[in-house]
Design a protein around this nucleic acid. Structure first.
Length: 528
RNA sequence: GCGCCCGUAGCUCAAUUGGAUAGAGCAACGGACUUCGGAUCCGUAGGUUGUAGGUUCGACUCCUGUCGGGCGCACCA
C-alpha cells in the first residue's frame, strides 16, 4: 500500500520526500512535511508551498483528498483503492504482507553453551531471533538460522567433572570434595543417574572417564536445548560445532598473518585489534600453544564469510558487548568487510516472583529454567512479552502476574478479537465467498479507520524488520485488536443493512491478526 | 577509573528513528448488558520525558556536561 502511495506522490512532486503517518487519522492516512524542507530553498513559507503542492493531486484516483494543514501535506486514500486492496488480501492471505526483498542473511542466535538447559535469559534472544527469521523470510529475504555450539574449551571438561562428582556422591554415595567452580543444579544429578543407566555405574569409578562423560553429557544437553526450543516453536536450520572448526585454524591464521596485524609477545600470539578501536590487543594463541576462545570465533566467522552471505546478524546477550569490537577487528584482518556483521544485543531479563528479584546465573544452580516459565505462562505469552519490549531495554516482569489468566495479558486480548470475528461470522451464517465481492464504500468513520488499520500490516512488518524492532509488530496487533473491540461495541453487524460490508471488513482484520501473529510464532485462536 | 546500554504517568512499556496536542495496558475512580461473548467498551484522573546547557522552523529522539541503575573491562567461555 505504502509503495503505491509513494509512487503516486513521486510522480507528481518529482523529488525525494519523507512519508509518514499523521498522529491523528482525521488529518489523513499519510502525510509529508516536505514543505518545511523546501521552505528554505524556495524562500517561501511552508504553508504557501504546501497549498501549491496540494493542487497537483486534484485528479488523482488513489487519493480522495489532499489537503495542507499548517505546512503538512495530508493525503486521504480513496475507498476504491482501499477496497481493491482488501479484496486482494482476502483472496491471497498467505501472500499478504509479503514483499520482494532480496539478499541473503545468516542469522545466528541463542548459541548457548551445551552445559545445561536454557534459562530465561536465553529465551529473549531465542524469541527475537526466531521472529526476525519468520518476518524476514516473509518479506523475501533468504535467511538461514544457525546455532553455534561451544563444544570445546574448559566448560566442557567442567561438565564432565560435574557429572562425575555428582555420580560419586549420589549414586555411589561416596564423600566427594567439590571444586570451587562446577555446574550446580539438579539436572546434573539427573544426568548422573541417566549416565549410570546408559554407561554403567562403573563410569564413576575412575577419573579417566570424565572426558567420556563430558562428551556424553554435551550430546544430552544439545538434545535438551533443542526440546526447550521446540517448546516455544523454534527450530534451527543448522548447528555448527566449534570443535569441528578447529582443524581450519591454520587456514584462518594464514589470512591473519597476511594482514600484518599479528605479532608475538611474551610467548603468546596477539592480534592488533586496537587498530580498529578495540580497547586492547587480544591473545589468540596462549603460551602453551592452545588457541583462545577468540580463535574459535575467528575460524567461525571466516567460515561464515566464506559461505558468501550478503549480511550477517548475531544476536548476543548484552554481557557480550565488549566482545563485538574484537570480533569485528578480526573479521577485518581476515580480509572481509566487517560492516556486513550486525550484532544485536538482547538486554538482561529480570524475573520477579511475588515482588522478589531473582538473580540469574548460569554457573550457580540458582537460575530460572525457560521450560518452567513456558509451563507457567505458555509459549504464546512468553513470546509476546519478550517481543513487546525493545531488545536494548532491560525487561522486568513478575511471573505471578502471568499466572493469573485475565485481560491484562495482551495475548488474550488479541486472541479474543480474533475469536470475536469468527463468532460474528458463525452467527451470520455466511462465509468468505458470500461477501468477498461486496464493495467497501460509504463506510462510517469507525469502519473506515478499522479497514485502514488492517491494511497497514505490510508496512508495519517491513518497518519492524528493517529496524529490528519487533515491538512495532506487537504494538500494531494490540492496537488493531483494540480498534476491533471498539468497532464491535459500537456497530452491530448481523442483521443490519451493512452486514455484508462489515463482515468483509472483519474478515480483513482477521487476516491481519492471523498473519501478524503467525509471524511471531503464535497461532491465532478461533475460540477462547 | 574506562567503555556500552537504559532513565518517559504510581507500576510495566510505546512514541512513525528530528515532526502536528508525548500514547497504551495494569492499578484508582465513574459510567454502558431484554441485542453478534461485558474475557469487551466509554469517560475521569495521572507528565517540566532524571537534570543543566547546546544544535534548528521543530528535540523524548542529535551533541556536551551531570546524577542515578544495569552490564562489561581475561590468555574464562
Amino acid at each position: 500500500m505504502k509503495k503505491r502511495v509513494i509512487k503516486a506522490i513521486k510522480d507528481e512532486l518529482q523529488c525525494e520526500f519523507v512519508l509518514e503517518k499523521p498522529k491523528d487519522l482525521s488529518f489523513g492516512h499519510y502525510a509529508t512535511p516536505i514543505a518545511f524542507s523546501l521552505a528554505k530553498k524556495l524562500r517561501k513559507s511552508p504553508m504557501i508551498i504546501a497549498d501549491e503542492l496540494c493542487k497537483k493531486f486534484e485528479n488523482s484516483t488513489i487519493f480522495k483528498e489532499v489537503t495542507s494543514v499548517k505546512g503538512y501535506i495530508n493525503f486521504k486514500l480513496s475507498e476504491d483503492f482501499l477496497d481493491e486492496y482488501a479484496s486482494w488480501a482476502l483472496l491471497n492471505e498467505s501472500d499478504f504482507g509479503k514483499s520482494n526483498k532480496t539478499g541473503s542473511i545468516l542469522l545466528e542466535y541463542v548459541s548457548a553453551n551445551p552445559t545445561g538447559p536454557l534459562h530465561i535469559g536465553h529465551a529473549r534472544g531465542a524469541v527475537l531471533g526466531d521472529s526476525l527469521y519468520r518476518v524476514g523470510r516473509h518479506l523475501g529475504y533468504k535467511i538461514t538460522s544457525e546455532y553455534y555450539v561451544n563444544d570445546a574449551g574448559s566448560q566442557m571438561s567442567m561438565l564432565g567433572l560435574s557429572i562425575y562428582l555428582a555420580g560419586r556422591e549420589n549414586v555411589l554415595h561416596v564423600e566427594v570434595e567439590w571444586p570451587e567452580e562446577f555446574y550446580r543444579g539438579e539436572y546434573i544429578v539427573d544426568l548422573a543417574y541417566e549416565a549410570k543407566e546408559e554407561l554403567g555405574v562403573e563410569v564413576f569409578n575412575d577419573e579417566s572417564n570424565i572426558e567420556k562423560l563430558s562428551l556424553w553429557g554435551k550430546d544430552k544437553m544439545i538434545e535438551l536445548i533443542k526440546s526447550n526450543l521446540a517448546d516455544v516453536g523454534i527450530e534451527f536450520e543448522q548447528f555448527v560445532s566449534e570443535k569441528s572448526l578447529y582443524p581450519k585454524w591454520d587456514e584462518s591464521f594464514k589470512k591473519l598473518l597476511e594482514s600484518g596485524k599479528v605479532y608475538e609477545e611474551g610467548g603468546k600470539t596477539w592480534i592488533r585489534s586496537t587498530d580498529l578501536d578495540d580497547e586492547k590487543d587480544r591473545v589468540v594463541i596462549r603460551e602453551d600453544g592452545r588457541p583462545t576462545y577468540l580463535a574459535g570465533d575467528i575460524i567461525y566467522h571466516d567460515n561464515k564469510y566464506q559461505r558468501g552471505y550478503d549480511h550477517y546478524i548475531n544476536i548476543w546477550g548484552a554481557d557480550h558487548h565488549g566482545y563485538i569490537s574484537r570480533v569485528k577487528a578480526a573479521i577485518n584482518f581476515l580480509g572481509y568487510d566487517e560492516k556486513k556483521l550486525e550484532v544485536i544485543l538482547a538486554q538482561m531479563v529480570a524475573l520477579l516472583k511475588g515482588g522478589e528479584p531473582y538473580k540469574m546465573s548460569k554457573r550457580a544452580g540458582n537460575f530460572i529454567l525457560m521450560s518452567d516459565v513456558v509451563k507457567d505462562v505458555g509459549s504464546d505469552a512468553l513470546r509476546f512479552v519478550f517481543l513487546s519490549k525493545k531488545s536494548d531495554t532491560h525487561l522486568e516482569f513478575d511471573v505471578d502476574m502471568f499466572k493469573q489468566e485475565d485481560s491484562s495479558n495482551p495475548i488474550f486480548y488479541i486472541n479474543y478479537a480474533h475469536a470475536r470475528i469468527n463468532q460474528v461470522f458463525n452467527k451470520s451464517g455466511k462465509t468468505l465467498e458470500d461477501i468477498q465481492d461486496v464493495k467497501l464504500e460509504n463506510l462510517n468513520e469507525d469502519a473506515a479507520n478499522l479497514l485502514y488499520s488492517a491494511l497497514l500490516l505490510p508496512e508495519v512488518l517491513e518497518d519492524a524488520f528493517e529496524s529490528r524492532q519487533l515491538q512495532k509488530l506487537t504494538e500494531y496487533l494490540k492496537s488493531l485488536s483494540s480498534s476491533l473491540h471498539k468497532f464491535y461495541n459500537e456497530n452491530r453487524v448481523v442483521g443490519t443493512k451493512d452486514e455484508d460490508k462489515f463482515l468483509k471488513l472483519l474478515a480483513m482484520v482477521g487476516v491481519s491478526l492471523r498473519v501478524g501473529l503467525s509471524l511471531i510464532g503464535i497461532k491465532a485462536k478461533d475460540k477462547m
